Every structure is written in structure tokens, then in C-alpha cells.
Amino acid sequence: MAGSIRGLVVAVTGGGAGIGRRIAEHAARAGAIVAVGDRDEQSARDTASALGASARGYPLDVTDEASFRGFLDAVAADLGPIDVLVNNAGVMWVGAFDTEPEQATEAMFAVNVLGVIRGVRLAAPRMRERGRGHIVTIASAASKLAPPGEASYAATKHAVAGYLTGVREELHATGVQISMIMPGVVDTELASGTATGAAKLLSPDQVAQAVVKVIRAPRFVTTVPGYIGPLVAVSGLLPQRIRDRLMRAMVPDQVAASAGADRSDYQKRALG
């Protein structure tokens, strides 16, 4: 039976906008005490202010060890021990692999991989000491697939899936839960100018609802929409040539999709 999240301290990275903001909103609506962390401190505080007295905003750069540690310490001091950490912060560059700037590649690995590792490494031991806690990471369907035009982004999400699989085993029977949410393409600035393939465009609210659901009833992997998981599992049993044909029909070619899109503003802000 699913439990209540009322009164739990839920900390969300990258919570000032997009999916992170919706996660914070849905968690607060369900009765959680919410800590909103974001590199844009003002957006974090604005989001928290909109949620009411049960939320607070904090500056957080997930690529900086001192910043992440300071975030966790401040939340614990202000709101109490963190029950749930939602590793949501993420960035994405889209385009042909041989035109991807080195700075963009490094930024994706710094945020999407090292940021998640840092969050788990800093938060999980505190939870283990208390004998309870939950870390939910927003991964991606790219953790299972690798759309053309998102090679490095997919690599970061594959890395996250591998890391969390190993950590989950280390934390077995400690009371600390590890979960991954793997959505398809979500209607946010990060995905602007990309295509959805055979799947429908998701809303940030759909991802946020999946997060709240998995906090209430922990499970390791949740795909959004749900059929992505079984589809990938079944396709993995097919001969390569048939699998290739299926994936090319289902998975979008983001090189072609983004060719006419102007993602420059987002990529300049997110990737430097």
C-alpha cells in the first residue's frame, strides 16, 4: 500500500524551473516540506515563495562539492533531516556528434553524471545512519535508448543508470531506497526543438506525478510512459537488424529534428 509523504522533507535539485519546479509543487501539494535548490538562487526562492510557508529556496550548484554539501547542511538545519533527495538538475546539448563543442560535453557530464554522484555520495550516508531515506533521480528514456543527436546526453544517462544500479546494491537492507524516473521527451526548454518519435510529448506535471508516486511506493525504475520499459526489454531480444528497424521507427532523429531550431539561448545559459 502506498504511503503518505505528508511531513517528509523533500529536497529538489534544479527546482527553480521546468520539471524541478513541478516536482516541488506536487510534493508540497501532497503535504511535504520542500527545499528548492537551484543555481539560479532567485528562481529557487521565487518557487519556494509561491509554495508557501512549508517551502524554502536555496542556492545550489550541483557541480560544486562545497555548494552541494552546504545545501544539504542548510536544509537539515532549517527544515530537518532530508527524507527524500530528488536529483533533478540536468542539461542537454543537441546536434550531430562531431559538431558538439567540448565545453558542452564537459558540462553535461559535470551536471548529469557528477552532479548525481555527488548528491548520492553526500546524502546517502546521512540517510543510512538514520536507517531510512530515499534518493530519486530524474534520468531519461535515453538511459535505455540513444537517439541520434543526443549521443553524449544519452551517455550521461547510461552512466547514471549504471551508477545507481551499483549503489542500490550497496545500500541493500540499509533502509535507503534508490529510484530512477526515465521519461521520454518532456515539454521543457531543455527539450525545445526536439522530436518525440512515436511517443507523445510529456508534460512536466506527468513527470512530477511519477516522482510523487514513487516516493509513496518506492520502486527502482519507472518509465514515463510506462510502455517504454517493456518495449526496450522486448526489443533487446530481437536480432540486431530487426531491432535497428524498430528503433529507427520509434526513436526520433534529433539531428534532423533540431536542424531548424534555435536552442542558442538555452544552451548558452545551461552549458556555458
Results as ranks from 00 to 15, higher is better:
165 T>I: 04
9 V>F: 04
181 I>Y: 10
260 G>V: 15
238 L>C: 04
125 P>F: 06
25 E>F: 01
263 R>C: 07
46 D>E: 05
99 T>H: 14
97 F>C: 09
243 R>W: 02
83 D>K: 05
229 G>E: 14
66 A>R: 01
222 T>Q: 15
163 Y>F: 12
168 R>G: 12
76 A>V: 07
2 A>F: 10
55 A>D: 03
248 R>K: 15
26 H>D: 11
134 H>F: 14
170 E>G: 08
4 S>W: 12
40 D>N: 12
270 A>L: 05
60 L>A: 05
164 L>C: 02
11 A>C: 07
135 I>D: 11
159 A>Q: 09
101 P>E: 13
58 Y>V: 00
41 E>M: 08
117 I>G: 07
71 F>V: 06
205 D>P: 00
106 E>A: 06
100 E>L: 07
151 A>W: 11
265 D>I: 09
165 T>P: 06
2 A>Y: 10
80 G>D: 12
115 G>L: 09
169 E>S: 10
256 A>I: 15
270 A>H: 04
56 R>D: 01
229 G>H: 15
11 A>M: 04
269 R>N: 11
196 T>S: 03
55 A>V: 06
256 A>H: 15
196 T>V: 01
38 D>K: 04
16 G>A: 08
228 I>D: 13
186 V>C: 03
53 A>W: 01
30 A>R: 14
182 M>C: 13
30 A>D: 14
137 T>A: 03
60 L>N: 03
176 V>S: 05
41 E>R: 12
219 R>K: 15
195 A>T: 00
106 E>T: 12
141 A>I: 04
178 I>N: 06
52 G>Q: 02
101 P>R: 13
96 A>C: 08
213 K>F: 11
242 I>D: 02
215 I>M: 15
152 S>M: 05
270 A>Q: 04
262 D>M: 11
264 S>R: 13
42 Q>Y: 14
236 G>W: 04
